[in-house]
Design a protein around this nucleic acid. Structure first.
Lengths: 119, 119
DNA sequence: ATTAGTAATAAACAAAAGGTTAGTAGTTAT
DNA sequence: ATAACTACTAACCTTTTGTTTATTACTAAT
């Protein structure tokens, strides 16, 4: 028996694909956190590492590379300064992720209220 | 030298904490996909496994348990049916995740358009 | 009689993600 | 002189996540 493929299925598949595309770029433990910290004005490597508690230099470094590859951030090295200072700047494109972060943060806040009130 | 803790930092920390709370419950490769599939009407174990391509029974099983523990889904066993049928139902609370999924899926769609157009 | 579908779970293993420690090389503050 | 800061990176190890295969026990269709 073959199931008919109705509108709901098609919509569901498209939806799942879009979700997967997003998670491919934004998923993982750290990427959204890094972007959130950057949106709050943190730009430098050690600054980011201090702000995002728990992240190691190794992971921060490799995640920043991925974000750069995906066009979400830009790396700016200031050779003139001493010591040489590197800044990571969110691109204009990355601003489209603001919504994602806000919706998630709102949910997280609601969820914390829920679990702290019920126990 | 101690940095002063200004409003931006406080806001950033609160934001990051909320984001972390959300990711604790919704993060990982599969949870949002499972919820998205359930919101599209898929309820049964094998149905979910077929819909969410790539997930193994073991992982689906353990993720469903976590979602249940977090109050996002409910497990309903219909002993009367034969063979016994189990349904996983999104709770009312889980509906609050609709927003998250939509925003992410929208972003994923935009992103796909962007990368398929530029190459 | 065999195959397939119902919903899982266990064991054994592989792969991916992440953490820890130590180190680079130059500068500046104590 | 020593410590700390700049921005990383390599090597190694642990943890998490996921895969594959087999198994449960019953039913229904071929």
């Amino acid at each position: 028996m073959r199931k008919r493929m109705d509108y709901a299925d098609t919509k569901c598949e498209a939806n799942l694909r879009a979700l997967e595309d997003a998670l491919y770029v934004l998923g993982g433990k750290w990427r959204l956190r890094i972007l959130a910290a950057m949106f709050s004005g943190h730009k430098r490597f050690n600054d980011l590492q201090r702000t995002i508690r728990g992240i190691s230099a190794r992971v921060l470094s490799s995640e920043l590379k991925q974000l750069e590859l995906n066009g979400l951030i830009r790396r700016e090295v200031h050779v003139d300064k001493t010591p040489v200072v590197t800044e990571y700047i969110a691109t204009g494109y990355a601003r489209s992720i603001d919504d994602v972060i806000h919706v998630l943060a709102d949910w997280g806040q609601k969820h914390r209220k829920k679990i702290t009130s019920t126990r």
